[in-house]
């Protein structure tokens, strides 16, 4: 990161931190209340991070911007819910995973392979088609109702720190478990990428497709693997989201939020996806609570996008992304 870029990033974070604490300074919001909002924001940020993680994985390994990641989340959650009617949770999870791997294989076969070496924008539009197909397919096979997904996550909120503050702060235990799951997932992905030979091959492919191919890394298999991993991430996201919000079509719309997240974090960076998700989740909640009333509410729907848009103007490669130099 160059000096000016670093300064810009620091300035951005400083501004964000200032914006985050300003309600306490100017609007007389009490600290526990504020902390509740912050924690709530970070928790929904974890969910965005989970979807963004899938996006970044696929983008790193295949240069494809996978618009269907949200549809994959919905599809995985739907499959899991329906399978749980017939089998215990663990078996249902295993079967869903198999389904997601099969999906990865099909996508590679039917979409990616015929479109190899096409421009990014074409592949992006193709994944838009995949998203539509998957949404229709999932609902026609599994039904279009709202399903409740119960994987045994704790439902009742807990009051924490009631010794320190009057009334304490209310934290949903479900969110805490979700955050733990996300952390576990990121840790295991990190180990997978750093320690296994498949993981190293994936990183090589991410750096340079042709070079990776020329030293004998089978590109097609790598793509299947990476889409499978993304499918697994989608399953985890589906479990967490589904049990929080219910499994329904609108999950797909919420998943669109992962787009501004990766723009903020940088397309090629896993830490970026995490930090970006947290930032967007936090920013969204705080802005809705404190700025929302000024605008008539509902700004949650566009805040993340406009934040990403502004960010793009100043730092197109994102916080952690690599700068790309055009060569001619």
């Amino acid at each position: 990161m160059s000096a000016s870029a670093r300064n810009l990033t620091i300035a951005f974070f400083a501004l964000l931190a200032f914006a985050a604490v300003s309600p306490m300074l100017f609007q007389g919001v009490r600290f526990p209340q504020w902390l509740e909002i912050v924690i709530g924001g970070l928790m929904s940020g974890v969910l965005y991070s989970l979807v963004a993680l899938g996006l970044v994985l696929i983008f790193k390994a295949s240069g494809v911007f996978n618009f269907a990641q949200g549809a994959m989340v919905l599809f995985a959650a739907l499959t899991l819910v329906k399978l749980m009617d017939h089998m215990p949770l663990v078996a249902a999870l295993a079967v869903t995973l198999v389904v997601m791997v099969a999906l990865a294989w099909l996508v590679e076969r039917l979409v990616l392979r015929p479109l190899v070496n096409q421009e990014g924008i074409v592949l992006f539009m193709a994944t838009l088609g995949v998203a539509y197909f998957l949404n229709g397919f999932g609902q026609i096979v599994w039904g279009a109702d709202v399903f409740t997904l119960d994987v045994g996550m704790p439902k009742e909120p807990k009051i924490l720190l009631d010794k320190m503050f009057e009334g304490g702060i209310l934290v949903s235990m479900e969110d805490v478990v979700a955050a733990l799951i996300a952390a576990l997932l990121v840790a295991s992905l990190a180990i997978f990428f750093q320690k296994t030979s498949t993981g190293r091959a994936l990183r090589a492919v991410a750096d340079d497709h042709q070079a990776a191919q020329s030293i004998g890394i089978p590109l097609n298999r790598i793509w299947v693997i990476v889409w499978s991993v993304a499918g697994m991430v989608a399953l985890v996201a589906g479990v967490v989201w589904g049990s929080k919000l219910g499994v329904q079509f609108s999950l797909q719309q919420v998943a669109l939020k992962a787009l501004p997240v990766v723009i903020l974090g940088g397309f090629t960076s896993i830490p970026g996806a995490i930090v970006g998700g947290l930032l967007i989740g936090l920013g969204e909640k705080l802005s809705e609570v404190y700025l929302g009333p000024l605008f008539g509410g509902g700004i949650e729907n566009w805040f993340a996008y406009v934040l990403a848009l502004v960010f793009l103007l100043f730092r197109p490669e994102g916080l952690f992304g690599e700068k790309i130099i055009d060569r001619v």
Partner: peptide
């Protein structure tokens, strides 16, 4: 409902088909 779902599938499949 099924028809609108089939519609989604057909649109999706056609997009991929035409791009390829």
């Amino acid at each position: 409902a099924s028809i609108s779902e089939i519609e989604l599938m057909v649109f999706g499949a056609l997009i991929v088909f035409f791009l390829i």
